[in-house]
Design a protein around this nucleic acid. Sequence first.
RNA 1: GGGCGGGUGCCCGAGUGGACAAAGGGAGCUGACUGUAAAUCAGCCGGCGUAUGCCUACGGUGGUUCGAAUCCGCCCCCGCCCA
Length: 401
Amino acid sequence: MRILMRGVEFGDERTRQNMERELRERLQRSADTGRPLRVYCGFDPTSTELHLGHTVPMRKLRQFQDLGHQAIFLIGTFTGTIGDPSDKDAARQQQSLEEALEKAQAFVDQAWRILDPERTLVEYNHRWLAKLTFSEVIHMASLFTVQQFLARENFANRYAKGDPIWLHEFFYALMQGYDAVALRTDVQIGGTDQLFNLMAGRKLMEAYGLEPQVILTFPILVGTDGRLRMSKSTGNIIGIDERPGVMFTKVLNLPDAVFRNYAELLTRWSPEEIDAMIGAMERGELNPQDAKRALAWEIVSIFHGDAAADRAAEDARRMHRGTAPSDAPQIRLSGPRPLVDLVAEAGLVKSKSEARRLIRQRGIRLDGQTVEDEHAVVTPSDRSEQVIQVGKRKFLRVLAT
RNA sequence: GGGCGGGUGCCCGAGUGGACAAAGGGAGCUGACUGUAAAUCAGCCGGCGUAUGCCUACGGUGGUUCGAAUCCGCCCCCGCCCA
């Protein structure tokens, strides 16, 4: 129980007490009857990449798994075509079912970094949501009032600003709620921003004569910018499939202020350890950089193992000295090439113009020497590789063919 | 269905015939400073072998004009008010 409730956050003490009590009762009943609880968390396939933000509820699912319960990894192949308004100021762009299914596959592939494939049920909500009849939808809609929706902060804001609120956005909560009905779940896990949707699930379950699910919500993980929720569309993500070195430096470059948020949501550290570290930082006994180095190691280790974490830490040191990390991309050259073409082709910059710009700003180095000439040419050497560095952290190794 | 106001670069937003790749802000990128953070300062910020050059771009389309983000026609879309 202590493990399962760790990190749970509702923003309301009464809700927390109620949920804790309900969860305790369910666990007891499960122990008595031998029926594992059905625990699920849904993810809309809006990108092809799972990121650290997704892993917070996923790891909670894993904890339930490890206690013998049934984890359901639900992919919002249908809800994902509508778009969740929860974290948005504006409506999300819609996509087709085909696109959603493609991304869903990518999600499943990455999910096994956290979940146990043997004990996970993967579900797709288009299987039941696509079959609902209009009268069923109307019935569900009749259980909620427009005022309840307009009371939600993001809708209220958009309404006040005169921004469009599309009718179909209201249905998002109903659809997600119906997932709980269709799956007959005992527990649903989600971010605190999902509270409204999860509560809609409880309401619908009651209306369908089912016992309402227990809901557990968790704080939102902020992105690399240190302010906004981590999400692909904001571009502030750390993907769980990213190379260990990239993951490591991204964590290292986080603003100091998010240390607690990350430590509590992502690491295996105990609350006591985390408090101790933050206390030491505040007293000036621990350099925040060292704390983040430990955090980076811990996070990389969780997803890629200790060895990869060690290597990433070493690479970060090398990069700081201006030498290429061990996993830097390589390119083979048969003859002299203009530097500008080379870095553009290798994808280190978006365009040749950008490359020229960077040279003018002294942001490109060749073997440690700042490149001064926009027309510089790279000539491959048989003897040794050459290292091109763009900005602080992009490297390219050049070898002769 | 009617009236009014809108649709501009990644986002917000100024711009009502040429000096507009288009003010300003945000985001992003580079450099300095630092702890590889934050803050601050400077620069950059559509593309093109760099060019007082060309291409792409101001909801769509068709016009007017030497010249259109700016004017006109038609169309699409959004907000507010009324029905």
